[in-house]
């Protein structure tokens, strides 16, 4: 019987740190897409709560504890990010949801990076057209947007952001983020000396 081992798309490439910012990889055990069928949102919430989780967040928001985070991920779609592998749903969607929502395992599909530090926002602003100002894109907010021509989902954390990109471009996204970190840090140093 075979036993395959998983491999992160950013294996061995992170963390990356330059003055004022740290980019690191975050590993969620399971990521599940939940798309409630028509009229089933309440039932989905009941079911989620029965599993010890939070209800689905509002549009553009995050809900639930860190270990079992629920994020809004677009029109009619939510992602359950579970720190423990296979905690809520295994790769085979929970049959209890059959009539309630379209469930789809996305654990492998998304790669999550965390960008933190004093200049994290400035770094992200080099790549991302979203209005990232703290007064606009607040803690608990989540957005699907673009990062250097790639689709991303991002939300604000206490000291920075978590950034989700699809697996096939994870290395490109990482390279662009680390490049922006270099650029911002170097320019900041320049500003201090001149």
């Amino acid at each position: 019987m075979v036993d395959l081992t998983g491999l992160s798309a950013l294996e061995g490439l992170l963390p990356y740190e330059v003055d004022g910012a740290v980019l690191s990889a975050v590993s969620y055990g399971a990521i599940t897409s939940i798309m409630p069928f028509r009229g089933q949102k309440t039932a989905v919430n009941v079911r989620l709560k029965a599993d010890g989780g939070a209800a689905l967040p509002r549009i553009g928001r995050v809900s639930g504890p860190v270990a079992k985070r629920l994020i809004w991920a677009g029109r009619g779609q939510y992602l359950l990010l579970d720190l423990r592998r296979g905690a809520a749903f295994d790769t085979t969607p929970d049959p209890a949801f059959d009539e309630l929502a379209a469930l789809s395992d996305q654990t492998s599909a998304w790669v999550v990076m965390r960008l933190e530090g004093a200049r994290a926002q400035e770094v992200l602003a080099r790549l991302c057209p979203l209005d990232l100002r703290a007064g606009v894109f607040k803690r608990g907010h989540v957005a699907r947007t673009e990062l250097a021509h790639m689709a991303v989902i991002l939300w604000r954390r206490p000291k920075g952001f978590e950034i989700m990109v699809v697996r096939s471009v994870a290395q490109v996204a990482m390279r662009r983020l680390s490049g922006a970190m270099d650029s911002v840090a170097a320019q900041a140093v320049l500003g201090e000396i001149s």
């Binding site: 549009i59 553009g60 677009g74 029109r75 057209p129 979203l130 957005a143 699907r144 947007t145 673009e146």
Partner: peptide, 11 residues
Amino acid sequence: PLCGDRDAREF
């Protein structure tokens, strides 16, 4: 209506 004010490059 869902995401708020965004740059047209996302569309």
